[in-house]
Design a protein around this nucleic acid. Structure first.
Lengths: 122, 122
DNA sequence: CAGGATCCGGTTAGATACTG
DNA sequence: CAGTATCTAACCGGATCCTG
């Protein structure tokens, strides 16, 4: 997500920036699983289920770039790479989890609203 | 964003669902402005600045479908349509604002991490 | 005024094949 | 094992034109 909020304040850019990362397709799931502890690439992929290795790589690189995740390479054969949350990544989980809790508590209300809406439109 | 999390729990689907909506390009801004009170289509568009009418329509329809926003049509000429947050929409703002606050407080840390990362890679 | 319809370029994500 | 490279289909968002 590119913000492109020409007229918005720096703060809004920051918020959109973080929401753009958090709101993408896989980031929250990856962070969620990594919060259980460091994990290797393939294990992460297996646990998530349904993510292509390309998207997992892309997501992890983005998280690493933004300082939410560390990437540790063990120079062995076969190679081994561990991913882990940084302190910043752990902190991020607090507000994200709050949003997640809210979602869990209210998801039925949302689904009910959808059902009502779809019945009136279709 | 379509979850497609075959192996995930319902909870994870719910979280991704909500984050998918919240994380899209305009939703947070629209909800933010509507939290100041009901607003007409064009005023909303002018205040946001940079959003096409198509995307504003799409965003509002999505929010309406999920029960976050109400759409009130005044049968006058020219027509007038007011948008307003529902109680569910107001509630959503709480965790979203928390995430926004976190973003504001930590955005420099993220930008610094990016700079370090880009220097090591490029 | 509030949108619906259409077209189009750019981005994204998945599948596949290949590599140190 | 942990990726990179490439191709392609789908989607997204913007611009433009049109209407009750």
């Amino acid at each position: 997500m590119k913000p492109s909020l020409h007229l918005e304040s720096e703060d809004c850019r920051a918020v959109s920036d973080v929401l753009g990362r958090v709101g993408d397709k896989w980031t929250v799931l990856v962070v969620g699983y990594l919060s259980e502890g460091p994990m290797r690439f393939t294990e992460l992929r297996r646990r998530i289920g349904g993510i292509s290795q390309k998207m997992l790589t892309t997501t992890l690189r983005g998280l690493e770039r933004d300082g939410f995740v560390t990437r540790t390479v063990f120079p062995s054969i076969p190679p081994r790479v561990d991913y882990a949350l940084t302190p910043l990544g752990e902190e991020l989980r607090i507000p994200v989890n709050a949003l997640g809790e809210w979602a869990r508590h209210n998801i039925t209300r949302i689904y009910e609203a959808r059902q009502r809406f779809d019945q009136n439109v279709l």
